[in-house]
């Protein structure tokens, strides 16, 4: 908590976008990567901060595995993908000695590293900092939001796939955003369909329309579908010649989808990215939040008698038996 309010190393960052999803494997890292590439394509300077400590995917997706983080006089120098230094990355993947090493950490250690990522990385001047997160609504998310809160504007891009099981988890993520006072810039639906390369039939592998419905339900903008599932379109990426990259980045698959998403961030929805007043409810840090309108109150197990047996439900605050 110390020093988090000082402008520090994030002083030169104009916008921060958190990419969130309650569900894993829906394409948070892919969307983060493509959003960053699309923004860069539009001439912006972009940084990607990967706070998925147990499963960092960003280095591989951008062909930067094996690169190392160096210490500079202002802190940790991020990994730059190109000579113009228009895309910079920071991930725990760069700090591991062996790529298969498991980061078996409990919450407090993860929180400490995320704080360090926020305070100690010398990002320099950036138009956008894209923060890629792990699935869920737990330590990493709270730590990132807590550390980034002093820097406005801060907004969240929520990623889902169309099927109900994914939408269910993402609904919870939207509640998380509301509770923590994080503005939702919109919902992106990924893996919307798969076009068979043999007969060109488009199959909705993971059902249809869930993202748009969710956005309507939650009253947040629906930014578009990414027809992600083009087989083999995600190239193996092992050794893209990023070092020799000149002007136009090879925007991978989902280009149109992310182009639309990024232009809606830059274009009509751009107001979403203007600085706003800080959220009304301060985020209370290391506490849990659940139930309507409650931030950090005491949680009790409340008994609701129902017939002969009693029903356990999660209740918050109020009177009742303590746990």
């Amino acid at each position: 908590m110390e020093g988090a309010a000082e402008p520090g190393n994030l002083a030169g960052v104009r916008h921060i976008i958190l990419v969130l999803s309650g569900k894993g494997g829906v394409g948070k890292s892919t969307v983060s990567t493509e959003l960053a590439l699309a923004l860069r394509h539009a001439g912006k300077k972009v940084g990607i901060l990967d706070v998925d400590l147990c499963g960092p995917s960003i280095p591989r997706m951008l062909g930067a595995q094996g690169r190392a983080v160096h210490q500079c006089d202002r802190g940790w120098a991020p990994v730059f993908l190109d000579r113009e230094q228009s895309i910079s990355l920071m991930s725990v993947g760069f700090l591991l000695e062996k790529p298969d090493e498991a980061v078996v950490w409990r919450g407090p250690k993860k929180n400490a590293l995320i704080k360090q990522f926020v305070s100690d990385v010398a990002w320099g001047e950036l138009d956008y900092l894209v923060v890629d997160t792990p699935p869920g609504t737990s330590d990493e998310h709270m730590a990132a939001i807590e550390a980034l809160r002093p820097y406005q504007p801060l907004g969240a891009l929520v990623v889902t796939t169309p099927q109900a099981v994914s939408v269910g988890d993402v609904r919870r993520e939207l509640t998380f955003c509301r509770k923590t006072g994080l503005r939702v810039m919109g919902v992106v639906e990924n893996m919307s369909g798969f076009t068979c390369p043999h007969c060109a039939e488009c199959t909705s592998v993971f059902s249809r329309g869930g993202g748009e419905e969710l956005a309507q339900l939650a009253g947040v903008p629906f930014l578009g579908e990414c027809p992600e599932l083009v087989p083999g379109s995600r190239p193996p990426v092992p050794s893209l010649p990023w070092a020799g990259l000149t002007s136009v980045p090879p925007v991978p698959e989902g280009e149109e989808g992310m182009g639309a998403v990024s232009s809606s961030l830059l274009g009509p929805h751009a107001t979403l990215l203007r600085p706003v007043a800080p959220p009304p409810t301060p985020f209370s840090g290391p506490s849990w939040v659940a139930g309507p309108g409650l931030l950090g109150g005491p949680r009790v197990w409340r008994w609701k008698p129902s017939g002969s047996a009693s029903v356990l439900s999660m209740a918050t605050g109020g009177s009742g038996a303590s746990s």
Binding site: P108, S138, R171, T175, T180, A290, M314
Partner: peptide, 17 residues
């Protein structure tokens, strides 16, 4: 099964989990 609505988020840090 312990949440009262499908929108309820369990925003817990490690120890509570």
């Amino acid at each position: 099964f312990l949440l009262s609505s499908p929108d309820d988020a369990v925003i817990w840090r490690g120890p509570k989990k």
